[in-house]
Design a protein around this nucleic acid. Structure first.
Length: 424
RNA sequence: GGAGAGGUGGCUGAGUGGCCGAAAGCGGCGGUCUUGAAAACCGUUGAGGGUUGAUCCCCUCCCAGGGUUCGAAUCCCUGCUUCUCCGCCA
């Protein structure tokens, strides 16, 4: 949610900024609603004031033993008027809230213009793209040959876009997850956390998935209403919902492994082959809650933490700064890390690291007490994949294959593979 | 699933219809004392919103949502939730 004060001081700025995202914002209709809100609110508060002062007078008269009948007669019809005003006010506030909740975050000044991913800017490139003296296979063919990846079985048990992993490849994914958790805890200073994988609507509203993106979610239960998490970002960031954090406890840094569930509605034709886009996948997520002045630096750091995993695994990647049109709804600035997939001959997203600034914090009411002012102020929230484990598995398979379709386990994963060096 | 007891400010906790946004303590902040610190003492200290040039002033908030009442932290209903005991159970 955007800062309500900004709506009063600089409506044009908001419009300009949202234009960058091709989000249509109409200041006139906002102003009309705001004017109505103001009138109704003042009216309601005046009626409330009248009720309060008259009621107080009755109490005082009664205490003195005076006759309160005339006073009671005066307030007879106040109740109905007040109730009507309050009802109208609630309706307008609801309408305004819906409008505000539907509006995306203001982009950081450093975010480049552009409508689509074609306008994203490459910031950095690392590693050597492997050259093979044979035609490299993709993970689907490799997995089938090794009898470790079975999409038909996934479809039989659940539906399309589900997969079953078996044997050493299943273990490889677990090893990847272990490595990531260990590195982020030991080398990057994150606290490991385990959280619910089903969350309520309030939590999803806090991080911005609701109300706009309900179609992307799996609803798991109606009573109580619970959704499967699309990312651990949701439960982890909601740790600080409605919390005033001690300044000395900042920054908060959490790492969490979880399965993620996405309906992928609207992605029907995309990435239908392989494990790139699944309804269920494993991910290790990094979340930070920081002071506002620290968030830009924290964003760079967090991205480096994700990059360190790729480096440790010796996977070639590039770092992209997303353009205005490709930056997510809640984010003010996002870096994507794209890993090289020889099977596709392309770089594909494996991590997305975002600075939400105070956008999520305002919805969450995640605050910290600023020692300088003594007042609670909104914190800044950030998160990033560190990394998507399923896609990392693919990347390891495709980058470390040999001409016989075997997978050579990267050095860093050997301690987690129980002595296995080659999957064949 | 059954029985009982709770949910009040950053925290602990008093408050059963008007004098309560709310005692007291802790914590925080400021001060006195001290070479400095601690202790002691004094003062101060909830959040959000409306209006305003700024103060003043006003409104809302005692888990949430309804209700009773001129008036609700307080009474009633529903839900959520925490704890204790019993049952069941990975």
């Amino acid at each position: 949610m955007l800062d309500p004060r900004l709506f009063r001081t600089d409506l044009e700025f908001i419009k300009e900024q949202l234009d960058r995202r091709s989000f249509v914002f109409n200041p006139e209709s906002y102003l009309k609603l705001e004017a109505r809100r103001k009138a109704v609110q003042i009216n309601t508060q005046e009626l409330q004031n009248e009720r309060n002062s008259r009621s107080k007078a009755i109490g005082q008269a009664k205490a003195k033993g005076e006759d309160v009948e005339p006073l009671l007669a005066q307030v007879q019809h106040l109740g109905d008027k007040l109730k009507a005003a309050e009802t109208e006010l609630v309706e307008i506030q609801y309408e305004m809230e819906a409008l505000m909740e539907g509006m995306p975050n203001i982009l950081d000044v450093s975010v480049p213009e552009g409508k689509s991913e074609d306008c994203n800017i490459e910031i950095d490139r690392w590693g050597v793209v492997p050259s093979f003296n044979f035609e490299p296979k993709d993970h689907v063919d490799l997995g089938a040959k090794l009898k470790g990846i079975d999409f038909e079985l996934g479809a039989k048990i659940a539906s399309s876009r589900f997969v079953v992993l078996s044997g050493p490849l299943a273990r490889l994914q677990r090893a990847i997850i272990q490595l990531m958790l260990d590195m982020h805890v030991a080398e990057h200073g994150y606290t490991e956390t385990y959280v619910p994988f089903l969350v309520n609507a309030e939590s999803l509203r806090g991080t911005g998935q609701l109300p706009k993106f309900e179609n992307d979610l799996f609803k798991a239960s109606n009573d109580p209403v619970l959704y499967l998490i699309p990312t651990a970002e949701v439960p982890v960031t909601n740790r600080v919902r409605d919390v005033i954090i001690d300044a000395k406890d900042l920054p908060l840094k959490f790492v969490c492994h979880s399965p993620c569930f996405r309906s992928e509605a609207g992605a029907y034709g995309r990435d239908v082959r392989g494990m790139i886009r699944q309804h269920q996948f494993e991910k290790v997520e990094l979340v930070q809650i920081v002071r506002p002045e620290d968030s830009a630096k924290a964003h760079e750091d967090l991205t480096v933490h994700a990059e360190n995993i790729l480096k440790k695994l010796n996977l070639p990647y590039r770092k992209m700064l997303l353009c205005a049109g490709d930056t997510g709804f809640s984010s003010s600035k996002t870096y994507d890390l794209e890993v090289w997939l020889p099977g596709q001959g392309a770089y594909r997203e494996i991590s997305s690291c975002s600075n939400f600034k105070d956008f999520q914090a305002r919805r969450l009411q995640a605050r910290w007490r600023n020692p300088e002012t003594g007042k609670p102020e909104l914190a800044h929230t950030l998160n990033g994949s560190g990394l998507a484990a399923g896609r990392t598995l693919i990347a390891v398979m495709e980058n470390f294959q040999d001409d016989q379709g075997r997978i050579h386990i990267p050095e860093a994963l050997l301690p987690y593979m129980g002595g296995l060096k080659i999957i064949e």
